[in-house]
Simulated assay, not measured.
Amino acid sequence: MTRRLSPVGLEFIESAALRLVFAREMSAPPEAVYRALADDVMGWPTWFAAVTRCRPTDGGKGREVLLKGGTRFRETILAADEPTRYAYRVDETNAPGPRALVEEWRLSPAGTGTHVRWTFAAEGALAFRLSMRIGRAGLGRAFRDAVTALDRRLTDTKA
C-alpha cells in the first residue's frame, strides 16, 4: 500500500525529531560527486548497493527509487545546488512508519577531494523512530560502502 508523507521543506532537515548524520571523505572532487548524485540518477544502483532502481520523474524534478526488499519511494527534489547540496523529500512510500522524510547530501572541498555529509531527517511513530535509531549502524555502513563505491567509480573513470 502506498502512503503519502507530509510535504515538508528544507527546514525539516534541522527540525526533524530524528536526524541521523553521516560523513566521509572522498578523493573525487565535489563537482564529480554532485554530478553522480544529481545528474546521473539512474547510475545510483551501480554504487549504492541498497538501491536497485532509481529514475528521474517529472522532468528531473523528482525521483522514483526502489530498494532491495521492495521498498519504494516517490520523491521531490528540494535542492540541487551544484556542487554543494542535493536534497530530496519522500512524498510516497510503501514503507511502514514514516510520516515525513528528507535526505540531504552536503558536499564541500577537502583538499583535492570532497567531504560528504548525508543527513537522514525523519518523523514518524515512536516504533519507527526507535527502529531507525537501532538501525543507525546499518544505515551508516550502507552510507560508507556507497561513498566508497562511488569514489572508486569516479576515480576509475578519470584514469
Rank of each mutant, 00 (worst) to 15 (best):
T112M: 13
V33P: 06
L107W: 07
A79H: 07
A159D: 13
D151R: 09
A50G: 09
V41E: 05
T52S: 15
A122Y: 01
F48V: 12
T114N: 08
G69R: 06
A149C: 09
T157P: 03
A100Y: 00
G97H: 07
A32D: 12
R53A: 14
L18R: 04
L150N: 01
M26D: 08
R133S: 05
G60M: 01
F73E: 03
D145V: 06
D81K: 13
T46N: 14
A28G: 06
T155M: 10
T112N: 12
N94C: 04
R74S: 11
K68C: 07
L37Y: 04
A32P: 02
F120K: 06
T93I: 07
T114K: 07
L139H: 06
E104T: 11
G9W: 02
L101V: 01
A49F: 13
T2E: 13
G62A: 00
V8E: 04
L107D: 05
A100R: 01
V116W: 10
M1T: 13
T52I: 14
L5H: 02
E104W: 04
D145H: 15
Y86N: 12
G113K: 04
S6R: 14
G9M: 00
L78M: 07
G9H: 05
L20C: 03
R144S: 13
E64W: 13
A87P: 00
A110R: 15
P98I: 00
D39Y: 10
L37G: 02
A38P: 02
R136W: 05
H115I: 08
K61W: 11
A17E: 14
Y88Q: 09
G111T: 04
A23S: 15
G111F: 00
Y34G: 08
E104I: 03
R24L: 11
S15G: 09
T2L: 15
P96V: 07
F143Q: 09
L10V: 09
A125S: 15
R106P: 01
G135T: 01
R153K: 15
A127N: 02
R152Q: 15
P7Y: 15
D156G: 10
W105Q: 06
T57W: 12
A127H: 03
R144E: 11
A142W: 09
F12N: 01
E123M: 01
E123L: 03
G62K: 01
A127L: 15
A17D: 08
T71F: 11
A32R: 14
F12I: 02
E64S: 14
D91V: 04
R74A: 11
D40V: 09
K61D: 07
A32H: 13
D91S: 05
T114P: 01
I134V: 15
Y88R: 13
D58F: 10
P30L: 04
G60F: 00
F22M: 11
M1R: 14
G140L: 03
I13E: 01
L139M: 12
E14Y: 05
D39G: 09
T57I: 09
G124R: 03
T46Y: 11
F22W: 12
W118V: 03
F128T: 01
N94T: 03
V65E: 10
L150K: 02
V33T: 02
